[in-house]
């Protein structure tokens, strides 16, 4: 019990919240990515693409509820400061998520001639959601302030996050599909990868220039040498991914999951980079996570719940992924 001091708890919950955000970005990232690059020309491709994410998207989105929920319960002051500043983009994000979430189900159940409308709704809703998320991230990095520079940066960030989701979404499809659709996904993955790479480079350059303490984190020895491993690993992954995509598809579908694995590492590196840049701030340059944390008693209660329940969640999530392993086929409702 003595380990559960207010400070440790704040740190643990910051780590939990960060983990939820990261898992959300990876998991909902791939299904959002499938949405934004949905091939509108071929209905069969759309059916297969959507079948590949059908059993998972709902649970993936729950990580967003957990992330926002943890922010709300563990750092209420930060939650209201951040969402206050991001009121409109957050509303657009929600509208995007609502549209794509329902389009998913409507497309399979409405009159056949209406299906294409819901497919467009799915694609545009996904796009609205990813752009809003990137925009919110951009404004967050800029210290939650709105001026011409920060809005331009946020729009750019919106495009980059969209590209990153398109990249991981198509990497997922490479693993989940075969034939022409897989070739299509490989091409799209390459294209999105180039934009993502450009985006990460730009954000990495601008962030330390705008925030003085970010500059300090990444340049002050001795830790800076250690931290340098993160961008190096990230860029190595891009190189490896480029090589892998050039050679795919291989006979017997070998290595089809390599791009998805590489994308995951890239997401983890980018996220770790951002998290290190801002620690200990939860609202950039305004509020540290220690200042924002709620009372020790209620965090302790949630802590024990989380310790027991999160392994169980991981276990049954593993069951679901195991049940739907292998290539996506035409999913049927039963």
């Amino acid at each position: 019990m003595s380990l559960l001091t207010a400070e440790n708890l704040a740190l643990v919950f910051a780590a939990l919240t960060a983990l939820a955000v990261l898992l959300y970005a990876i998991l909902d990232g791939y299904d959002l990515g499938v949405g934004i690059t949905l091939p509108m020309k071929q209905e069969a491709w759309r059916d297969t693409s959507i079948a590949s994410i059908g059993p998972f998207w709902d649970a993936n989105e729950t990580w967003l509820v957990l992330a926002v929920g943890l922010l709300l319960v563990a750092f209420p002051a930060a939650h209201s400061a951040i969402l206050h500043a991001l009121y409109l983009p957050a509303a657009l994000l929600l509208i995007g998520l609502i549209l794509r979430g329902v389009a998913f189900d409507f497309r399979a159940k409405v009159k056949p001639e209406r299906k294409i409308h819901w497919d467009w709704t799915f694609k545009c809703g996904s796009l609205l959601a990813t752009f809003s998320q990137g925009f919110m991230l951009g404004i967050y990095v800029m210290g939650l302030e709105y001026h011409l520079g920060s809005v331009i940066f946020a729009c750019f960030s919106g495009l980059c996050v969209t590209a990153a989701y398109a990249m991981i979404g198509n990497a997922w499809l490479i693993g989940k599909t075969t034939g022409d659709l897989q070739l299509h996904a490989i091409r799209q993955c390459k294209r999105a990868g180039v934009w993502t790479f450009a985006g990460i480079l730009t954000v990495s350059a601008i962030n330390p220039l705008v925030n003085a303490n970010v500059y300090q984190v990444w340049t002050e020895p001795p830790l800076a040498y250690l931290f340098a491993a993160i961008p190096l690993l990230c860029f190595a992954m891009f190189a490896l991914g480029y090589l892998a995509l050039k050679r795919l598809p291989l006979p017997n579908d070998q290595g089809a999951w390599i791009p998805f694995f590489i994308c995951k590492v890239i997401f983890v590196c980018s996220f770790a980079g951002l998290a290190l840049s801002f620690y200990p701030f939860v609202v950039p340059n305004q509020m540290t996570l220690y200042e924002a944390a709620s009372s020790k008693e209620s965090l302790t209660i949630i802590f024990f719940g989380a310790v027991i329940v999160i392994p169980i969640i991981a276990a049954y999530t593993a069951v679901a992924y195991y049940a739907f392993r292998g290539k996506a086929d035409g999913l049927k409702y039963y």
């Binding site: 059908g54 059993p55 998972f56 709902d58 649970a59 969640i313 049954y316 999530t317 069951v319 679901a320 049940a323 739907f324 999913l331 049927k332 409702y333 039963y334």
Partner: peptide, 8 residues
């Protein structure tokens, strides 16, 4: 999570 198994 269970919804995916239940539906598909």
């Amino acid at each position: 999570t269970m919804l995916g198994i239940m539906l598909f």
